[in-house]
Computed example of a mutant assay.
Amino acid sequence: MTKTLVFDGVVYPVISTRNNGDHLIGYPNTEPAEFLYAKHTPPVHGLAKGSGNPLVADVRIGDRLAIHRHGDHWLVSGPSGPLGRLRWSVADQGRRHAVSGEVIHFPDTATLEVKRLVINPSGQVVDFAGMTSQA
């Protein structure tokens, strides 16, 4: 039986539970990461450690967030302002994907559709993940 968690009145599948008690909830990408890289729509696996803004707590599954490259980093923003820096690394730009051999390309601008949330034991959103599309 699949474990579920009620968040904001909606029942979501729990994808995993971390050692600290955080739950990853939501939906997996509809395509494997290597296919998303091949389409130049790389997946987002969350924010870089320590870069999150308290506004992250307001992010919900289905939100569409703006991604913009700023120097060697990619920043994500919502309607209320900046949320943090993505885990994408400039060192990975142009590298070949380990499974598919596709060249990884992170766009300068994109839109992130949030598919998964990390919920802490207090019930607050502390991170998010999802799929990108060209802006």
Rank of each mutant, 00 (worst) to 15 (best):
G62Y: 00
P79F: 10
L24W: 02
V56E: 00
E31H: 04
V10A: 04
A38Q: 14
R87A: 14
H45T: 05
I15M: 09
L55T: 08
E102R: 11
H45F: 10
S100Y: 08
R116K: 00
G71P: 09
R95G: 13
R87L: 14
L36A: 00
S100D: 09
V99M: 04
L5A: 10
V126F: 12
V10Y: 11
T30P: 05
L24E: 03
V44N: 03
M131P: 01
L65Y: 02
V125N: 04
N29Y: 02
G21W: 02
P43Q: 04
K3T: 14
G123K: 04
D8K: 11
R69N: 11
A48G: 05
G50I: 05
T41S: 07
A57T: 14
S133Q: 06
E102N: 14
N19G: 11
I25W: 00
L47A: 03
L75I: 14
T17A: 13
G21R: 01
G26F: 12
V90T: 13
H23G: 10
R116I: 01
D8P: 12
A66L: 14
P13R: 01
D92F: 08
G94F: 15
R96F: 12
L55W: 01
T30L: 15
G130C: 01
L86A: 01
S100A: 12
Y27F: 08
D58M: 07
D127C: 05
H73I: 02
A38V: 11
D58K: 06
V125Y: 03
P79I: 10
G101H: 01
L55P: 04
P107R: 02
V59Q: 00
R95F: 11
E102K: 13
E31V: 04
T30R: 10
H97A: 14
T41K: 05
L24M: 03
I104M: 08
D58P: 00
W88N: 01
D108H: 06
V90P: 08
R64G: 11
S100G: 15
M1V: 12
Q124I: 08
T132G: 10
K115F: 10
V99R: 02
N120F: 13
L112K: 02
V99L: 07
V44G: 04
G50Q: 01
S16L: 15
I25G: 03
P13F: 09
Q124W: 11
V118W: 01
D127Y: 03
I67P: 00
D108I: 03
D127R: 00
N20A: 13
H45S: 01
V99H: 07
V90Q: 10
E113N: 06
G52S: 02
P107M: 09
Y12L: 00
I61P: 02
T109P: 03
H97Y: 13
T2I: 09
T4C: 10
H70K: 00
A66W: 08
Q134N: 12
Q134V: 12
L112H: 05
I61Y: 03
H73M: 10
A110N: 06
L55N: 08
G101S: 08
M1F: 11
S89R: 03
L5I: 08
D127E: 06
V125F: 09
T109M: 14
P82H: 07
L117G: 01
L83N: 08
V76K: 02
V44K: 03
N20Q: 13
P79A: 15
H73V: 06
K49I: 05
R60V: 14
S16Q: 14
P28L: 05
G62M: 06
F128W: 04
R95H: 13
G50S: 05
K39P: 10
L24P: 04
R69V: 12
R85H: 07
T109K: 10
